[in-house]
Write a protein that binds this DNA or RNA. Sequence first.
RNA 1: CCGAGGGUGGCAGAGUGGUCAAUUGCAACAGACUGUAAAUCUGUCGGGCUUGUCCCUACGGGGGUUCGAAUCCCUCUCCUCGGACCA
Length: 388
Amino acid sequence: MDKKIQELLTRGVEEAIDKENLQKKLTSGKKLRIKLGIDPTSPNIHLGRSIPLLKLRDFQELGHKIILIIGDFTGLIGDTSDKDSERPMLDEKTVKENLKTYIQQAGKIIDIQKTEIYHNSKWLSKLNYAEITRQTDAFSLNEFISRENISLRLNKGKRVSLRELLYPLMQGYDSVQVRADVEIGGTDQRFNLLVGRNVQRLHGQQPQDIITNPLIEGLDGRKMSSSFGNTVNLFDSSNDMFGKIMSLRDEFILRYFILLTRVPLKIVENYREQMTEGANPRDIKLKLAKEIVSLYHSLPEAKAAEEVFIQTFSQKKVPIDLPKFKPQDRNIISVLTDSGLATSRSEARRLVDQGGVKVGGTVVDNINFVVSSGVVLQKGKIKFLEII
RNA sequence: CCGAGGGUGGCAGAGUGGUCAAUUGCAACAGACUGUAAAUCUGUCGGGCUUGUCCCUACGGGGGUUCGAAUCCCUCUCCUCGGACCA
């Protein structure tokens, strides 16, 4: 089989259903319709979402039609697949706000010009009870409650809303509307994706094949999620993104390479060998950071970000252009709070106490210290401020 | 509508009259070490200052009992579970 198709079906793929059928479709030369749905639950798309988006791009490069569904309706309902509790319904305003730049963000990965984009409120808001009732045959209550996270909640006596049952149907109906041949989603979406097949059958369509992608760990090792604040966002500035990736746990370096970049697997394998032979993981991580930043910004920006990083952290130099601050009160405690480096005077005091504040490179050990113009104030390792 | 249980710091979750600004875990912040904003270890983690066995604010809202309440009582409110109603 074609090597490209081989990688398409394995890299960043947890499971493919029905794999044989999908392979057949892919080798047939037919142009397939590949669907991905994203709910606007947060204003930022993070790297976890880039896994299916990259997969979408792979398909796009092979000449298939990709379809992006913006879940402006489903976002209001709230999917609980990945949650251990009921997810609150978002209000329309939040969803609208979150939506604003979604396409632009996705456009950092896929070619928007060649992509079909839909908002699912277009059809979901119009369904009537007759239609919905018909769809409710797509799966049974038994199947639903046997899902691990649902049964867990039931056993704990936690509430499971009827609303949550409807969610998979909506997602499935999206597939009907766009006549999807393949749908991509995280492993947590497995149930929903499978339901989609049934909904399609109910509407006399060939059921879609399914590709699930693994969920990626965030910077702290827990699942990447906006609610944990451990995400790298596609809209992060190049320096920020670079720094965040450098703070990634070493053990995830290779995984990030495989899932979040398209660096050839051969080279990734080579990195693995280098590290087992004792290479400093930091150096591999620098490559990773550079790779990812250039994916979402540009190679020159990535190089610049690397330069900044090495300057400030490896060589502990003061960054070149740092934020300036003109204090009213020049007492060190006031400067720290007024500039926002500390949230309260108590905290500012503690920082000084702990030796976390430096002026012009020397530790401030006195609460009554007065800062003069032109000096560089440093809080911790990464926050700098030029006093004017 | 009735009954039961519950609402505690950014989150999770202890505490059921004083020793509680509140155990612990996560997150966050600082320091040490380093290979980096990794890991590990240490410390901090409501606010204020005159840094004290100090003051102020705080355990859903309001009121009360008490020398003293997160803890007891009343009331309001919200959540969950069960029941009633309906079939």
